[in-house]
Amino acid sequence: MAEQVALSRTQVCGILREELFQGDAFHQSDTHIFIIMGASGDLAKKKIYPTIWWLFRDGLLPENTFIVGYARSRLTVADIRKQSEPFFKATPEEKLKLEDFFARNSYVAGQYDDAASYQRLNSHMNALHLGSQANRLFYLALPPTVYEAVTKNIHESCMSQIGWNRIIVEKPFGRDLQSSDRLSNHISSLFREDQIYRIDHYLGKEMVQNLMVLRFANRIFGPIWNRDNIACVILTFKEPFGTEGRGGYFDEFGIIRDVMQNHLLQMLCLVAMEKPASTNSDDVRDEKVKVLKCISEVQANNVVLGQYVGNPDGEGEATKGYLDDPTVPRGSTTATFAAVVLYVENERWDGVPFILRCGKALNERKAEVRLQFHDVAGDIFHQQCKRNELVIRVQPNEAVYTKMMTKKPGMFFNPEESELDLTYGNRYKNVKLPDAYERLILDVFCGSQMHFVRSDELREAWRIFTPLLHQIELEKPKPIPYIYGSRGPTEADELMKRVGFQYEGTYKWVNP
Rank of each mutant, 00 (worst) to 15 (best):
A109K: 14
I48Y: 05
S8D: 11
F56N: 01
G254H: 01
T236K: 05
A25H: 15
R192H: 12
Q161T: 14
R57Y: 00
R182S: 08
F66G: 04
I15C: 07
F66E: 10
K45Y: 06
G204A: 04
V12S: 15
K97G: 08
Y147S: 00
S157M: 15
I36H: 02
F250Q: 01
L183P: 04
F102I: 06
A115S: 13
I35L: 06
T65Q: 03
G247S: 06
S180D: 01
Q111K: 13
E206K: 02
F241W: 10
Q133N: 10
K95D: 10
D200N: 05
G248Q: 06
R166K: 09
N64T: 09
S123Y: 14
F102P: 00
A115H: 15
F66M: 08
N153W: 10
E93K: 12
N185Y: 12
I167A: 06
S157H: 13
I35V: 11
S132F: 13
M37G: 05
V208D: 04
Q133R: 15
I154Q: 01
F191Y: 14
Y49Q: 03
I199V: 07
F88K: 00
G69V: 02
R175V: 06
F216V: 03
V208I: 09
I80M: 11
F173V: 06
N126M: 14
G163E: 03
A134C: 13
G131E: 11
A109V: 13
T236G: 02
N64E: 11
P223E: 08
E239L: 03
A217Y: 05
G59L: 07
I256G: 03
C158R: 02
H124F: 13
L75K: 12
N135P: 08
G23K: 14
L60R: 08
V169Y: 08
M212L: 11
L214V: 14
N126S: 11
Y139I: 05
E99M: 09
H129Y: 08
A103W: 10
I52G: 00
A141C: 10
Y147R: 01
S40G: 09
A44G: 04
H32Y: 15
W225R: 02
N218F: 01
M212T: 08
I230D: 05
N226Y: 07
Q119M: 15
N126I: 11
F216L: 03
G174I: 04
D42H: 01
I67V: 13
S180P: 03
Y70P: 02
I255A: 07
W53K: 02
I48A: 02
H124D: 09
R198Q: 01
R166D: 01
N64I: 05
L142D: 02
Y249R: 01
K46I: 01
R120H: 13
E94K: 03
Y118I: 09
L190Q: 12
E170T: 05
S189I: 07
I33R: 01
T236Y: 06
D176A: 00
A39T: 01
S29D: 13
L203Y: 01
I230Y: 00
S117C: 12
Y70N: 06
V77R: 10
L7H: 15
R246F: 05
I48H: 02
I154K: 04
T31A: 10
L183S: 01
H201V: 03
K205R: 02
R57V: 06
W164G: 08
N64Q: 13
R215G: 00
Y107L: 08
D79Q: 15
L177Q: 10
I220N: 00
Y249C: 02
F102C: 06
F101L: 02
F56I: 06
P172M: 01
G69H: 05
G131K: 11
K152N: 15
K82H: 13
G69D: 04
P172E: 06
A44F: 00
I15T: 13
A231H: 07
A44H: 03
E206C: 08
E93A: 14
S84Y: 14
P92K: 10
L43N: 00
L128A: 08
L121G: 01
P92I: 13
A217C: 10
L7R: 12
Y139M: 08
H27G: 10
G174E: 04
L137N: 05
G110I: 01
E170P: 01
L211F: 14
Q195V: 05
Y147C: 01
R166Y: 00
V150K: 00
P172A: 03
R182I: 13
N210L: 04
N185E: 12
K47C: 00
Q11V: 09
A90C: 09
M212Y: 04
I220T: 06
Y70Q: 07
N165R: 08
N105G: 02
E93G: 11
R74S: 14
H27P: 07
R17F: 14
R9Y: 15
L7E: 13
F253W: 02
I234T: 15
F191R: 00
